[in-house]
Design a protein around this nucleic acid. Sequence first.
DNA 1: TTCACTGCGGCCACTTTCTGACCGCAATGA
DNA 2: TCATTGCGGTCAGAAAGTGGCCGCAGTGAA
Lengths: 317, 317
Amino acid sequence: MANTSARMLRLLSLLQTHRYWPGSELADRLEVSARTLRRDVDRLRELGYPVDAARGVAGGYQLQAGAAMPPLLLDDEEAVAIAVGLHSAAAGAVAGFEETSVRALAKVIQLLPPRLRRRIDALQAVTTPGVFGGGPVLDALTLTTLAMACRGEERLRFDYAPREGEAARRHVEPHRLVSLGRRWYLVAWDLERGDWRSFRVDRLSAPQPTGARFRPRELPGGDPVEWLRSRMRTIPNRYEVSVVIQADGATVRGFVGNWGWVEDLPEGGCRLRMNVDDLGWPVMVLGVLAAPFTVESPGELRDLARRAGENLVRHAA
Amino acid sequence: MANTSARMLRLLSLLQTHRYWPGSELADRLEVSARTLRRDVDRLRELGYPVDAARGVAGGYQLQAGAAMPPLLLDDEEAVAIAVGLHSAAAGAVAGFEETSVRALAKVIQLLPPRLRRRIDALQAVTTPGVFGGGPVLDALTLTTLAMACRGEERLRFDYAPREGEAARRHVEPHRLVSLGRRWYLVAWDLERGDWRSFRVDRLSAPQPTGARFRPRELPGGDPVEWLRSRMRTIPNRYEVSVVIQADGATVRGFVGNWGWVEDLPEGGCRLRMNVDDLGWPVMVLGVLAAPFTVESPGELRDLARRAGENLVRHAA
DNA sequence: TTCACTGCGGCCACTTTCTGACCGCAATGA
DNA sequence: TCATTGCGGTCAGAAAGTGGCCGCAGTGAA
C-alpha cells in the first residue's frame, strides 16, 4: 500500500505544481493505467480535494481551492522561502502575526531537512535588523525550541539572567510564547518555585527540552497575553509618541504603515501616535517626511530630533 | 483504500502537531489496533519520514527532520501565517527572497480555501508600507495570478499601460516573474509582436489566464534576470549610495541589515553602500545613527540630508 | 534487581481494496 | 462530423491491509 499512498501524494504534488495536467501524462508519470489514475483522482475528491477535470481535446486535471487546506508538498526552494518569510513575520514585520508565525515556523523548522535548515540558519537572527533599531536580537533556534516545547507540552530547562541577581538554571513547564511590545516572553509554570512566571526570551539561553511531557495547568484568567500584560503594568518602559505633522495623513500613513496610528486633523495635517521602545524610529520618520511638525510628547523626542538634525546639517555640508 | 491514505495523512498531521505521542493514543485516534498503527508508522518510515520511537514506560512516537520535506499539514491559523509571511517577504522584507516567495505564495494561495483567502486579502497590498516609501503598491492577487500562469505554462491576457502611449490589451506566454530593484517585472513572449518583452507589473492590470497551455520557448541567454538587467541598462533609475560613517561597523550593520553593505575601514569607521530608488531611506539611517558622516555619492543625498536636518532643527524647538 | 510498561516484528487467516482490461457514454472543440 | 479525452460500470486475479496472537527487547521506577 505504500505504493498507493505514496502515489496519491505524488499526484497531489503534481497537481500542486503545474496547473493543468492531461490525464495521460499523469498516468504516465505515476506509472499506472489511465483507469487507475481516474480512480486516484476520485479518491482525492473523496478526501475533499476538489480536482477539476476538462474533457475534450485539450482536457486535463486541475486542483482547485477547497474547503480544507490540502497537505502542502513543497520543494526545497519553497520550504526555505516559507521559513524565511515566517522568520521575518515572527520578527514583527507584519504586526499582529508574530505569535502565529512562530508557531508555524516551529512546525516547519521541526520538519525541515538539515541541509535546508543550514541555509536558513545562515540568515540568522530572528529580529530583522534594519527595520529600525528596536527589539533585541534573538536566536531563531531559541525561539522555535521554546515554541516546540510549548506545543509539545514538554518540560524545559534553560539559563535565565534576570534583570537583577544572578543567572540560574530554571526548570519549567512552558505554556505560551507571547510577543509584547517587540519583545518575546515565555509564560511558564516554574517547577522549582511552584508558580507561574514570565521570562524574557532575550535573557534566556541554552534551552533544553527534557523529554518529559506534562499535562498543562490552567493559567489564572486563562489568557496568557492578558496575564502577562497585567504583570508588565508595573514595569512600563515604552514611549508614547504623539506628533502633529503638517502633511497629508495618507502620506504619513503610507510611511509608518502599521507601526503607528495616524489621525487626520480637521484643521489640516495629522497626528501621528506611536508606541516604541526606541525613539530612533520616530525621528527617522520626522526626518524623512520633510514636513513641519510639532512634538507633543515625549520631551526626549524633541531633543533627539534636534540633535539628529544638527548632526545631519553639520555633516552634509 | 481512501481509508489507509487518509489515515496516513492524519497520522502525519498528528505527528506534526504534537511532538510526542504515546502509541496507544495514536491508535485510539486513528481507530485502529496498535498492530496496525505500528504498520502505519513503518509505512511512513518506508516513505522516508523518520519517525522516532521511544520504548519503556514513557515511550511514544515522534517525527524528526528527514531527508525530504514531508507534506505540510497546516491548520487555518498556520496557513494564514504562512501566506502573510510570504506576502511580506515577496514585498521585499527579506532581500533576495522576493521571487521564491512569490512562487511559494502562488502555490499556497492557489490551494487556500476561500474563507482563509478572504482573511488574507483583508491585509491587502503586497508592498509592506512603512518600511520606507519605496516600491509601487501591488495587488497580491495580480502578482500571484502571474506567478501561477508562469508556473502553469498558461497563456495570459492583460491590460498594459506603457510609460508612453496608450494602454492596450496584451496576449502573452508568461515566462518568469522577476523582482529587480524593488519592482516586479513579467518576462513573457508577446504573442502579437512575436518577440520577448518585459512588463512592469505595476503598470499591468486585469490579468486573465486564458486556459490555453503552451510549451515554453527558450529565452535568449537562458537567464531571465540577466536578460532583464541587460534590457534595463538603458534606463537606470536607481541611486548608488556611498557614505563613510564614523561609527562602529557592527552598529551600522545592525541598523541597515540586508538593505546595504557595510565595510569596515582600517582607519576606523565604516563605509555604507546602498542601492535605492528613494533617498529617503539612507537619510533616515544617517539621521538616527547620530554619528559624523561624509557623503561620497550621490550629491543629491547631501542636499536631502541637509534639508531634512534643517527641518528637524527648526521644528524641534 | 525486579517489574510494569511500551514498542518491535513475525506469523496466520480473513477481508478488503487495488489494478488493468474492456466496454459504451458524454462532453469538447477543430 | 470526428478525433480526443474524461467518466464510470463490470470482471477476475493479485495485492494489500487488518486484527489477534506471540515472544522479544529496551526503559525507568519501585
